[in-house]
Design a protein around this nucleic acid. Sequence first.
DNA 1: CTGTTAGCGCCTTCAA
DNA 2: TTGAAGGCGCTAACAG
Lengths: 351, 351
Amino acid sequence: MTRAVTLTEVAREAGVSPSTVSRILNGTARVGDDKASQVRRAIEKLGYTRNAFARSLATGSSGIIGVLTPDIASPFYNDALSGIERGLMGSGYSPLMISGHWRTGEEEHAVELLLGRRVEGLILLGGQLPDAEIRAVAAQVPVGVLGRVVNLDAWGGVSIALDQRQSARDLVTYLVGRGHRVIGHISGPPDHADARERLAGYREALEDCGLRFQPSLVVAGDFQELSGLIGMQRLWQRCPRLTAVFCANDQMAYGARLALHRLGLRVPEDLSLIGFDDLPGSAYTTPPLSSVRQPMAEMGRWLARAVLARLRGEAIPPFTPRQELMLRESVATRRVGPDPAHPPRRPKPLP
Amino acid sequence: MTRAVTLTEVAREAGVSPSTVSRILNGTARVGDDKASQVRRAIEKLGYTRNAFARSLATGSSGIIGVLTPDIASPFYNDALSGIERGLMGSGYSPLMISGHWRTGEEEHAVELLLGRRVEGLILLGGQLPDAEIRAVAAQVPVGVLGRVVNLDAWGGVSIALDQRQSARDLVTYLVGRGHRVIGHISGPPDHADARERLAGYREALEDCGLRFQPSLVVAGDFQELSGLIGMQRLWQRCPRLTAVFCANDQMAYGARLALHRLGLRVPEDLSLIGFDDLPGSAYTTPPLSSVRQPMAEMGRWLARAVLARLRGEAIPPFTPRQELMLRESVATRRVGPDPAHPPRRPKPLP
DNA sequence: CTGTTAGCGCCTTCAA
DNA sequence: TTGAAGGCGCTAACAG
């Protein structure tokens, strides 16, 4: 409401020059104890807080790392956000987060805004921005990308992503190893890169194991719970011989699980279910859901550190994110008799 | 990497004065079409973005609303964050979010930082800051508080909170109405105001209905899933006559639900379960969880609007948040025979 | 150790 | 319609 107190006012109150106050605030130089305490008293009395803008303008550095997230309320990306927060903690930099709401236009706008605020680094979580635009930004500030492979080497950027396809293969191979032969898939939206990778992994795993890929066993969802529920209903209707379903993410697996509950089918006795992402809640569904964990928090934390390292010209710390199969209780073992027509090929052992 | 382009450089490139460029950027005055297009071309060519700091410094306004959240990754507060985001959208203000991690010290530090960034308004989600400190801040910028009652009238602040106690009463009264007589409670941490309110509501509802409050039927959790699981085990061990349990939040209800699954008890046939908060996932648990919905997103949105209104000296829009009992499938009706010793008093009808 | 001086990039009078 | 000049609050040489 009232105009904020300025450094100059503090200086006047303390009877010293502005530079002295500045020096005390920044510890830039030794200052006499008497003046120092006078200044401190003045600051206290006036309730002074440094104006970060003026400071940034003068020093030429904002102390801000921009973070573009698709959705501030997405359970999936949130872990990455806390990781970033932790990675930045104590560095003197603070994150400025904006959501792009999965829309390219909004994302571009957000990047513009971030650049206008002179962020010194930029972290992108997933997102729809074309690689070319990301590279253009990387030419201006250090960029870190999570969940997407973008070649930024020539621009000094980093990108970190897990092999979605491989994880999907591992998951499906695991199902086959447990004796499942008719495995459905509820996929994500076909225009989503991760969704396509996970579908491809599903398909490859089946073929590796000598099973036929059947398009009718795949229904597309949108990564939300409801679509999992509907997808499961459709799948069951189409093919009651189904013994397992691989959902492209945990949220859809939750929906599928409810559909089964409604159908009076037990998990895993009647049908095995498996998800992807390992959301925090997945350890507490009934039964606890098997899934593959993407270490989002660790990745976010590392990415923040990597961007900081770039900023300070240090070497980027090494890091190999590991996906982890979280095998819980949503998958049952099926005894599978020998089938002369399709002798089950031995699935590859899990790594 | 390279120093950013400045307005002056654009002016030189376009062969006009800086003020002209500024005017075009802001639409502050009519400018000749020829110059305008020249400037536009120069901006394009140089890849110019306005320096928000310099701008803020000159205009004296930052265009930022600070948001202090206990946890950037909390499913509960996240909805409020998206609401705030939506409320601010198109206003020219953007949110700057910081987490306090439930620690008073961090919260104070965050507020300091926010004030240093000259936020023009401040939104507090819950939090531990003492009322006095909030009022001190409110003296400087418009403040909005969500999920906590703080008297800010004299300072021009707003606070919005739901009556946790009443909702808890409604919930428990509902259980009694469905025939439950032995109702347990897994409470939140005793030092958390909401947790205390919900516990008080539980107690009052029991007493209103002529049931005795039994401390042994209450176990304290910490609002996390695991504590719900452990709490449920303990409760069942202590008192197998239990027919319903009221969990102080949904996350603990998830844990409790898993504990019951492990114990081989069915929900709701063997034991009814009810939560609080209505997280997005609660509609998809098995069975779907009855809970009370706090319209966090709407509240966040309104709060953002209210702070904006204050900022512009407009009237604050009216809003009455309504909690809503989300009655789903986790509660069963018990037939209850007449009990001569304790004739069941008729519970108050729900509003 | 401390004060003086000159910007940082932009906006906003005031003249022209 | 346009340009010149001054200042927003702070920092960083440069002299003492």
